[in-house]
Nucleic acid binder design. Structure first.
Lengths: 176, 176
DNA sequence: CATGAAATGAGGACCTG
DNA sequence: CAGGTCCTCATTTCATG
């Protein structure tokens, strides 16, 4: 009936791997974080306490890092969005990058491979606020330059989509 | 379906501007969407039913679009992240862009100003899956080319930060 | 403020290894 | 036999008119 026997994961750190129940729960919470445990259990085929226990473990293990509200950017007064490519020296070791965490307008920050070092996702009230942020950015040592891509329209913006149909776990090594 | 061209300014009915209570509530829900109405009310200085009513209105007006879970990308088997710049012809009118919504690996999609047309945020299981996605992308008519920035490390990734301290609404025009 | 619903804790049964 | 996970039931807390 149910096959929980899929705990063969070389990823020894975070306990066991996610089974189909976990993925269904995470997918449900991904669409609506305020779903009732009973409602989630209905989708997943579990009772409410069982879902509650699994959610607790998922939170504990760090798989479920938290829940957040999705807000209308224009309504809260931050309609100006841009991706800023930062060209810099010595970003690798410096924790100076973390200084940018203090700016609430910075939503994302990734070091990347390519013709730039860091990509920032920055959301501000308007162009003037963006300019002010960039001026602050250039104060940081090591910043050689930036290249900004101002967003004209956002066609899609959503959270990570967990694949419920697990077509990834097994190693595709054909035994003979 | 909601049109993208909606109230840009407080037109009276469709939703008056957010007050400090609303922003505090939204900020609280932004940190944890499963907070109790009583807990939110404690932060905002309101009773639980008052918070409940305001949240209902915020949902109704579209300011609060929903709630979602924040998941560990590695834990759910999608550790490979890239920003894909798409160079294309005639993206403006075509709804072909919306075809990409069907790909669960596409998390964001923006048309931008700059030396590219569209920026995609794409998260896959591995490089092979990313290559497969790109091959699908090139099938779309009008796609001239792509430039991908593979993320090496993610230093920050968070939701919109509503400014609780409202320093934005009025124009700071200095006298004379 | 009151009522119904949901979250959460405890105990016992089942499957797995 | 041991460990873990699920279910049912009961109580506290919360959502909601």
């Amino acid at each position: 009936m149910k096959s929980k026997t899929e705990d063969l994961r070389p990823n020894g750190r975070p306990g066991r791997a996610l089974d189909a129940f976990d993925r269904t729960i995470l997918a449900a919470l991904s669409t609506d974080a305020r779903l009732t445990y009973a409602e989630i259990g209905e989708r997943a085929g579990l009772s409410a306490p069982a879902v509650h226990e699994r959610v607790r473990r998922l939170r504990e293990s760090g798989v479920l890092q938290g829940t957040t509200a999705c807000l209308d950017a224009r309504a809260i007064g931050k309609p100006f969005l841009a991706f800023v490519h930062v060209d810099a020296d010595g970003w690798g070791k410096s924790q100076r990058m973390m200084t940018l965490r203090r700016f609430p307008e910075v939503e994302e920050m990734h070091s990347v491979a390519g013709d730039t070092c860091v990509i920032l996702k920055v959301r501000t009230q308007d162009a003037q606020a963006m300019e002010h942020f960039l001026s602050q950015l250039y104060v940081l040592p090591g910043v050689r330059g930036t290249k900004s891509y101002v967003v004209l329209s956002t066609y899609l913006e959503r959270a990570i989509q967990p694949e419920v149909t697990a077509h990834w776990p097994e190693v595709p090594l054909p035994p003979e």
